[in-house]
Simulated scan of single mutants.
Amino acid sequence: MASFKKQSTGWEYRIRYKDPITQKFKEKSQRGFETKKEAQVAAADAESKIAEGYEQTDIPLIVYLEEYVQEYKVGTVRKNTLIQHQNNIKNHIKPYFQSIMLREVKPIGYQKFLNHLAEKYSKSTVEIIHNTMNSALEKAVTLGKLEKNPCRGVTIKGSVKAKGLKFIESEHIPAFLRAAHQYGYIYWMFYRILIETGMRKGEAAALTWDDVDLKAGTITINKTLDFSAEDESELFGDTKTFNSERTIKISQSIIQDLKQHIKYQNQNKLAWKGSYKHKLNLVLCRDDGNFMPKSSLFNSFSRILKRAGLPSMPIHSLRHTHAVLLLEAGNDMKYVQERLGHGSMRITADVYSHVSKKIEESSMEKYEAHMKSILE
């Protein structure tokens, strides 16, 4: 309950309350009001904020962010998303803000933080880091730890990556696969699967024989491999998004290759005996049944491209290659979206519109033929 007193400088209110965190009594006061009525209105507003928790003891920003992730993200978001939040705090937010208190984060200071990030990272990366901070401080408002979210209304800058899509043109695929086979059978198999299914490398690396139905001619994609896992219990994680979980048809040639691959693995199992990683049950793995390290995939892919006389590109380009092949074969965007596991067709259309020379040339030929029929 507020008390009021007239001072030489005007009316003053004084509120005594118990801090819900420290359980200690505190006082809040303000003076300089011309009338008692003004002091009463201000006191009522202050009491309301105290009741909602705005006057509780402040805490360091990083302590709050770590508590936020632990209480509101662990067990509610996918493993990859959780790791992303944790890395954003550890690698970007903590080094910049250091020991600043939660309520000391102000809009202009936060904007300077985003501008600092924009000097080194792309706009999309800055947006990802901002998402961690913004969602956490929005929750702080709900919890009564902040009156307003200082992350609202910011301007996100940063470089925008060129939209040039990298993929292997269809006429160069045979040369690439020949170079892959010469480099090593398992790499040929791995990259052939990527080209013919559009799986991400982590999805392909996590593929187990339980996911393959050779009779039905399908592959079910329901997990991804965590290449940085410290033990086998953490090796398999969730797919990138819920939409990434999907079952796709595979070609007869891939079915035959997988049947031969089973025989190849059986020979390895006999050779490695008890040392073979039977428990993992991986389809695309090293000779001992263990998963293929990310470094081995990166190095092999780079060398195979060079041997095939192709320009440098990331492994993810094989996913793009598959999408372009589907479009060249006459499939519509909706089918490509579902096969790749995109959340919406807009994503698919934004990425793959006008990407293949063959599609562009075919479209122009159809247009010219149509115009010729009209004008003649």
Rank of each mutant, 00 (worst) to 15 (best):
H85F: 15
I156P: 02
S124L: 11
S275C: 08
V63L: 13
V41I: 15
I83T: 13
E119R: 12
S275P: 03
V141K: 07
A42F: 05
R192W: 15
A2N: 10
M371T: 07
N115T: 07
L146F: 09
F298W: 09
R346K: 15
Y54N: 14
V160I: 13
L225C: 06
R16Y: 13
E38H: 09
V160Y: 03
I221P: 03
I193M: 15
K123F: 08
V212E: 03
P95Q: 06
F291E: 07
S124N: 12
P20Y: 09
Y187M: 03
Y276D: 01
Y64C: 09
I168N: 00
C151A: 14
I374M: 15
E368P: 00
G75A: 05
G32Y: 07
H130Q: 09
S363R: 08
T76W: 05
K259N: 15
K334F: 14
K120L: 13
E27Y: 14
L327R: 00
E328N: 08
K94Q: 14
A349K: 05
R200C: 00
G53E: 01
L117V: 02
V74G: 05
M101C: 05
R192L: 08
Q267Y: 09
K279R: 14
L137V: 11
Q337C: 09
I173N: 03
I248Q: 01
L305D: 00
V69A: 05
K358I: 10
N268Q: 15
S353Y: 03
Q30I: 01
V351S: 05
K277A: 12
A51S: 12
M1S: 11
K90Q: 11
K123E: 11
N299D: 05
N266I: 08
E203R: 00
S159F: 06
K6R: 13
A369N: 14
E34L: 15
Q30D: 07
F33W: 07
I93Y: 09
R192K: 11
W11D: 04
N243Q: 08
G217K: 06
V336C: 04
H370Q: 10
L340C: 05
K306D: 05
E55S: 14
M1N: 11
A51P: 05
I15A: 07
E360Q: 11
I347N: 10
Y183H: 12
N222I: 08
T247V: 06
Q23G: 11
K358E: 11
G217D: 03
Q252D: 15
F97W: 13
L114N: 05
F190R: 01
E127R: 15
Q7I: 06
L310K: 01
W209G: 05
K123V: 10
F242K: 10
L177R: 01
M371S: 07
K106F: 07
V160Q: 11
S159L: 06
S228D: 13
Q86L: 11
K120Q: 14
K123H: 13
K36S: 02
K240G: 01
V351P: 04
V283S: 02
M133H: 08
E171F: 10
I304L: 02
Q182L: 14
P311E: 04
L235C: 04
E47N: 06
K249D: 12
T125F: 13
I15G: 05
D210F: 14
E338M: 13
I315D: 00
S302Q: 12
